[in-house]
Amino acid sequence: MTADALLDVRAVTKRFGGFTALDQVDMEVRAGERFGLIGPNGSGKTTMINCISGTLANEGGEIVFKGVKLDGKKPHQRTRLGIARSFQIPKPFRSLTVLENLGIALEFATGTSRSEVQERGMAILETIGLAERARANAGSLTQIDMRKLELARAMATQPELLISDEAMAGLSSTEVDDILDILFKLNEGGITIIMIEHIMRAVMRFSTRIVVLDAGRKIAEGNPDEIVNDPEVERAYLGE
C-alpha cells in the first residue's frame, strides 16, 4: 500500500449462493486520481461499488478508506466519511424538487443547516449545470438531467471520493462529453473519481489508471495505453 492511497481494497470476495461475483480482488485508488473500472457485463463492477459504498457486505477481505476500515459500516456512515456514489439507473427522490434532493444530502451527510441549504445547493447545481432546473420536480427531468442530478446529489454529500456508476449509458455523444466535462471539473476541484463505464472512448479519455475485471477477477491494471494493448483484456472482451 502506498502512502497516498485514499481507498484500499484488499482481497475482497463476494458470493451470491454458489456464484462468486468477486474473487480476491485488490485495487488501490490514490488521492486526486481519475480511476477507471471496466469489464464486460457481469464481471463484478457494480458488485464492487456496492461493496465499497456499503449496500452489499463483502465476505472476504477488507476495504480501507483514509485509514479507516469500512467493514460493518452502514452506507450512510460511509457517505459521511466521504464516499459518494451515483446510481446507474437514476434514483431521484421523485416527490421533491431538484434543490430539495440536494437538501437531503446536505442536511444528512454534512449537517448543513436548513438556512444554508439553498445557497450551498445552488452552488453545486451551478457547477453541474442544473441551476435552472433547481425548482423542477425531480421526477419530471429528462434523462441527461437525471444523470446530472445523480452527480449533483452525490456532490452534495461533500465527498472526497466520487463513484460514478455508468453515468453516461444511453446518452448521445454530445451529452457524454457534457458529463465528461463535469467530471473533469470536479476532479480539478480535488475530488478523486472512480468511473465505471461501458463507453470506452470516455473511460480512455478520462482515466489516468484503469483496472479491468472479468468474471470477478482482476485481469489487468495500468494506464489506458497499456490496457488497450493488453492481450488478456482483448480476450475478455472479444472472447477466445
Binding site: 452506507p75 450512510h76 457517505t79 431521484p92 427522490f93 416527490s95 437531503i104 444530502a105 444528512f108 451527510a109
Partner: peptide, 14 residues
C-alpha cells in the same frame, strides 16, 4: 420522504 421515494438512494445520501 427520502426513504419513501427511494430507500437505497436515501441511505447513500447519508
Amino acid at each position: 420522504i427520502a426513504i419513501r421515494d427511494d430507500e437505497i438512494a436515501a441511505e447513500c445520501a447519508g
